[in-house]
Design a protein around this nucleic acid. Structure first.
Length: 166
DNA sequence: GCCAACGTTGGC
DNA sequence: GCCAACGTTGGC
């Protein structure tokens, strides 16, 4: 069992029109392969920094009400993203060699859906959350690290169970 | 749909 | 290895 003190915290963006918290809720084992990452910085997070047992916020982007909608847990190590090899996929990458895959995926399981989301405009009003990567101007990373302090504050604000405090 | 911000590409 | 052009993200 992983010591909770080893846990890291993340924020994972998804467009709900493509895959949202409600899709994760009804997915088999409430788990999905987090595929389609095509950014080297995020790829490196997956490769170097993510561990099984890490926790994340499930964030909806590019939608009428962007914000945090739930909590997830990482349930696999990073592995080659199969969509990069699938010519029919939107995420196909013809330049990714099969013997040296460029892009990684990992498995993500629903921990809980928030009773009410913590919306982006609300997050910006909370001084304790200032400095979160996701709030920084021009940030475009689809996966960002979250400080333990920010993680705890958001759990408190959303009334989430304290056993996910890490 | 606009557009600021920024990552990636490719010519040199 | 520079950097302009291009493409994408994502809030608004």
């Amino acid at each position: 069992v992983k010591k909770t003190t080893d846990r890291k915290f993340w924020l994972l963006k998804s467009e709900p029109s493509e895959f949202g918290i409600d899709d994760l809720e009804v997915a088999k084992k409430q788990t999905t392969a987090w595929t389609g990452v095509r950014n080297y910085q995020v790829r490196n997070f997956f490769r170097d920094d993510f561990s099984v047992g890490d926790l994340g916020f499930f964030y909806h982007s590019s939608c009428p009400e962007p914000g945090i909608y739930g909590l997830v847990e990482i349930t696999s190590a990073a592995y080659p993203d199969p969509t990069q090899f699938d010519p029919k996929s939107d995420y196909y990458d013809a330049r990714s060699p099969s013997d040296n895959p460029r892009w990684l995926a990992l498995d993500v399981k629903l921990v809980s859906k928030l009773d009410s989301p913590l919306l982006l405009d609300k997050m910006r009003e909370i001084s304790a959350l200032a400095g979160m990567v996701v709030l920084s101007k021009g940030n475009r990373l689809s996966v960002t690290p979250v400080d333990k302090g920010h993680w705890s504050k958001i759990l408190e604000l959303t009334g989430s169970a304290s056993d996910h405090l890490g």
